[in-house]
Amino acid sequence: MLLRTLLVSAVLFVAPAVPANAAPGCSGYVALTYDDGPYAQFTRPLLAALRSARARATFFDIGTRAKEHPDLVRATARAGMWLGNHTWSHPFLTRATPDELSKEIASTQDELRRITGRVPTLFRPPYGDTNAAVAAEARRQGLDQVLWTVDTRDWTSPPTEEIVRSATSATAGGIVLMHDGYQNTVDAVPLVVQGLRAKGLCPGRISGGRAVAP
C-alpha cells in the first residue's frame, strides 16, 4: 500500500518548468533595464558594476544624449549590453503630432545606428506614455514596444536598499525599470543581481515583451 502511494505521488508530481536554454542555476530570467542615458558621470560606473556582477542589461538611451556622448553608447555596446530607443528628446508621446512622433523615434534610430552600426529593435516610450498610435508607429519602424513589470522609482532618489527590494521582487519573465544617472542605482547593482540569483533568477534579454535567456 505504501509503495502504491509513493508511485501515485511520483506520477502526480510535476517539476516546475525551467526554460530549455536556461543556464545552470537559472530557473528563469529577469530583464534589468536602464533609461535616460548616457551620462558622463554614471554610465561607465554602471557598466563596470554590471560587468563585475556578470550581468547584462538593456539601456534605453535618449537620442540627444547619445549624440552628446557617442563614446558612452559605444562603451555600452562593447560591454555586451543591449541598446534600445528611448526617443530623441523624452517627450510625452501621446501629446505629439504624427510627424513629431515619427521623428522622435526615427531620429534616435538613426543616431544609435550611426554610432554603433547596430539597429535597435526595442523601444520604450518615455514615462510609459503610450497609446495605439505610439505602439503602431514603433511597429512601423521595426521596433517592439517595451514597458515594465517592476518600477523601482529610483528617479525619486530612494535609498539603495529600497531599489534592491523593489528590483528583487521581480518574478521570472519580469522587466525591471531603473535609470542611468543615479549613484544609488549604480550601488544597487551587485545586491540586485545577488538577490535575484538567490531566487534562481538570472539577468536576461527582452524578447516578446518578457525576459528570456541571453
Rank of each mutant, 00 (worst) to 15 (best):
L201E: 04
I62A: 14
V8F: 02
V30K: 09
R56I: 12
A96K: 12
V176R: 10
V193S: 00
A211H: 02
G117Y: 07
L12S: 09
V193K: 02
A57P: 10
L191H: 15
F92D: 05
Q145I: 08
K67R: 14
I163T: 13
P120N: 12
P24V: 04
G117A: 09
T160C: 10
N184H: 15
T58R: 13
T58A: 11
G200C: 02
S207G: 08
Y182W: 13
K103V: 13
G208S: 04
G128F: 13
P214M: 05
L177G: 12
D180R: 08
D99G: 12
V176M: 13
A132E: 11
R139A: 14
V192F: 01
L50H: 03
A15T: 12
E162T: 12
R124M: 12
L7T: 05
L93H: 08
L201V: 04
P38K: 09
Q194H: 09
Y34D: 08
A22K: 03
E137H: 07
E162I: 00
Y39M: 06
L32W: 07
D36R: 08
H86I: 09
R95G: 01
G174K: 08
T171C: 07
M81P: 00
R78V: 06
P24K: 03
N85T: 07
V14L: 14
L2D: 02
P126C: 11
T58G: 09
A172F: 06
R44K: 10
P45A: 01
P203M: 00
R51S: 11
P190E: 04
G195C: 04
G128E: 10
A96S: 13
A22I: 02
C26F: 03
G181Q: 11
T171M: 11
F42W: 11
P125H: 11
F123L: 13
D110V: 12
A136P: 02
C202A: 05
A133N: 08
E100H: 07
E111V: 13
V18P: 01
A213I: 00
V212P: 01
V164E: 06
K67C: 06
V134K: 10
L6V: 04
M1N: 03
Y127D: 10
A15I: 03
L112V: 12
W82C: 04
L191G: 01
